[in-house]
Nucleic acid binder design. Structure first.
Lengths: 237, 237
DNA sequence: TACTGTGAAATCTTTCACAGCA
DNA sequence: TGCTGTGAAAGATTTCACAGTA
């Protein structure tokens, strides 16, 4: 257990492994080797071992990993054995959707408040039973509810100002949906989800694919790749 | 213009540059150097030049880049000079929110249909004026509306099956929100947004930060981290 | 002069391949 | 024997630093 520093790529994969282990556990599987895990979920076995090795020795040579045990370790490493209290800044379409989205209100992540700069919107949300507040209340609620994560879902123009307000309210981890380059002070963690960039990436690849059809000959179909790995499928060099 | 192969990291940055240029253009700036761009938006100037160099020579030595011209080039490279027709598979909270989310219905990305396996939900959406259809209609609508991008927002258990159905309907680019490892055939582009992994990443970093407070001495504050860097879950090869 | 475009170096990430252990 | 844990190699990405040019 010596995570002097571990890359985000690695920790993101720990989340993936945890998910895989949940699947295996539900299937009643007690023990799994890195090779089995890799084959079943299209990962690389050496990478699994290396990723885990950042945090300790969890396996048994000649046998593999104990599924429930490794699962518990990953939960501990990722800090998922504690509850997380979330606020959402910006109660527009996206903010409201995320509030309603089941994915968050499970597994120890609970939405404790929705903040919006429009008082009428706040009032109407409160009337509908949401825990909605004006922006000025953020610091108070963050303290009271021991909020540790904020979701930023405001218009681009307000992004940096609202982020600064969130940070001033004492929240040190932010999931940002605002398509803008934000600056955070040292010690504050920012994860950005930029839907526009994802769409434009797809547009780019579609354009590339279309271009290929015409050009023939230039592009050899090129032998099968080994494992898919993460999300994207991409032509390689 | 010789993109033999360009990484997703690079093309994602092109989207960022395009955004920066829009800002500059609105501010009436006609010309910008890579250094100015880098300073203003917290990028690296060499990287900007290298990224652009993948696609041609757009700058003027001693001067910089012509803002409107470079903007046009990026639009062309990313394929944003064409319209994109989108369908959403899964009309749950997230699917509906994305349908309503302004970010998509602008800039040539238009939502042409919402698909759900629940007939009652489809009926109620239709009654509310949405272009909603049962899953079985997907192929027909995809053809009719010349759909080129699908957003996958179904429950995890249905993920792979619905993805296969989307692909069978002739759509070759998918933005996936399902927190599950999906397989796509060669020639289909998949971009995944995994909100759960993002949240768990924040949980991990919070835990790390908290741990640090207690442990003292062990942890040098370690040089400032530069820029966000997070957003994309990606893998290349 | 002030910048771009680009090789070369530095850094980071993945994969290989094997020593060593249950 | 069959696996983990891990050094070392390969590969990918970023950054440096400068030649060359408008």
């Amino acid at each position: 257990m010596k995570p002097s520093h571990v890359s985000r790529l690695t920790t993101n994969r720990l989340s993936v492994y945890l998910r895989c282990l949940n699947t295996l556990e539900q299937a009643g599987i007690k023990t799994v080797s890195s090779r089995e895990l890799a084959e079943q979920f299209h990962l690389n076995s050496a990478q699994i071992r290396k990723d885990l090795a950042n945090f300790g020795e969890f396996g048994v040579r000649g046998v593999g990993y104990d599924v429930p045990l490794l699962k518990q370790q990953l939960i501990r490493i990722l800090g998922l054995n504690k509850p997380y209290n979330i606020i959402i800044a910006g109660a527009g379409n996206l903010g409201l959707a995320l509030a309603a989205y089941g994915g968050f209100n499970a597994d120890g992540f609970g939405i404790k408040g929705l903040f919006d700069s429009n008082p009428e919107r706040v009032a109407s949300l409160v009337a509908s039973g949401y825990p909605a507040y004006p922006m000025g209340e953020m610091k108070r609620i963050a303290k009271k509810e021991r909020v540790n994560i904020a979701i930023l879902a405001v218009p681009a123009a307000a992004g940096q100002a609202v982020l600064d307000h969130v940070v001033a309210s004492g929240v040190r981890a932010i999931l940002n949906f605002v398509p803008v380059r934000l600056r955070v002070p040292e010690g504050v963690e920012l994860a950005t989800v930029d839907l526009k960039i994802q769409m434009e990436s797809l547009a780019y690849h579609l354009t590339l694919l279309d271009g290929r059809v015409g050009r023939e000959g230039k592009n050899r179909p090129e032998g099968a790749r080994k494992t898919d790995r993460s999300a994207p499928r991409t032509a390689r060099k």
